[in-house]
Write a protein that binds this DNA or RNA. Sequence first.
DNA 1: CCAAAAGTGTTCCGTCTACACCCATGG
DNA 2: CCATGGGTGTAGACGGAACACTTTTGG
Lengths: 224, 224
Amino acid sequence: MTYYSEHSQVWVSVDCIVFGFEKNKLKLLVGRRQMDPGRGEWSLYGGFVKTNESLEDAASRVLQDLTGLKKIYMQQIGAFGAIDRDPGERVISVAYFALINVNDYDDKLRIEYGQEWVNLNELPQLYSDHNIMVEKAIAWLRHHISTEPICFNLLPSLFTLTQLQHVYEAILGEEIDKRNFRKRIKQIDFIEKTELIDKLTSKRGAALYRFNRKIYADAPNFKL
Amino acid sequence: MTYYSEHSQVWVSVDCIVFGFEKNKLKLLVGRRQMDPGRGEWSLYGGFVKTNESLEDAASRVLQDLTGLKKIYMQQIGAFGAIDRDPGERVISVAYFALINVNDYDDKLRIEYGQEWVNLNELPQLYSDHNIMVEKAIAWLRHHISTEPICFNLLPSLFTLTQLQHVYEAILGEEIDKRNFRKRIKQIDFIEKTELIDKLTSKRGAALYRFNRKIYADAPNFKL
DNA sequence: CCAAAAGTGTTCCGTCTACACCCATGG
DNA sequence: CCATGGGTGTAGACGGAACACTTTTGG
């Protein structure tokens, strides 16, 4: 295969931007790098792409390794390829962000991997170009949150409207009028009210809602 | 560097989706593949990323090689990494799309490289995953055309409002009301009317407009 | 009984949409 | 003189934004 062998190969990695939602804040999972170069710096969690796996598979594997979770919502943010982005060798990295429900995530695993949930607006400086990856991920989120039903991935399968509103507020970085928000939600048929009541967050209790994927799949229009 | 050498390397290429606008249609530059595997199939133009260049540099180089143009507007669409996307070897490709003004593009070069402008809705089946790349590029364009002033890259530096409207119609795939369109344009201060008149496309003559980058840079808000 | 969160409608204003005719000129 | 594309305003519909009070109940 001389056609290929004329050219050089590079390492390709995936870096995962894991978002979670807790205490009405959008949070990001970061840890201290365990290896050189950059040992000890705050960093996203990543891994190299293997020959026998696709980019998506690599990202899934790395995410599952980190969180123990399968079938995480995941979205590619783009490829990052500055020559010296990795101080050691030429490594091109493909960034993926993931939205997880923090309740599904075993805290023992978090500690085992030395990961911390940090508030988005208190993000430290990260290794290499990881801050840029995070910014692009947030921009993507902001841009798509009102046309794609993805924020449910940050919540338990049953959630209150106040929780949902807080997710939007955290991502958009602005307050939303409660009445207008609820009016709009009511028009969306795949956000279903259940008979269940959440008594944890308020004395009065709040109705629990559910994202009905089947109804959405039938008519995938979303506009909030 | 045992840390790196544990892992395997792959080839990384860039593929360029070149859009042009002509006769009120959005067109795409494609050519017949000159090499195996896939020799003779319709394909985007691409090239391998070298060790000493960034992804952007590689895309720029490939685009300049193909079109002779420097400083083309370019946007990364994403990385494509299915294991068997290249039938020969494991090659991960990063897709970029570019918007060019067809008048700037030397037709001799086009013929030399065996490239054709094809209408977007008459796109043939392309090599490997190139059709998917094109679809993603179009989706990106549709999604961003009304919030980022990028369509000017498809036009000469002086253009008529009718031309501009045709660009929008071609990208969005729907007709736009002329009066409403022009009303909105008038509110945008960085789309400047010049004293020049275009007499080529109509007998009466149409005012030529210009995109003023400086005014836009001062207040980069765009909403059409 | 009171603090704390849930829940609920209306009015106003600005924006988007639909729509039709006159103008200038080259051939 | 006529065919061709350029250029212009208004009225009505619609959707988004602002806004405050009542309800429930655990402590």
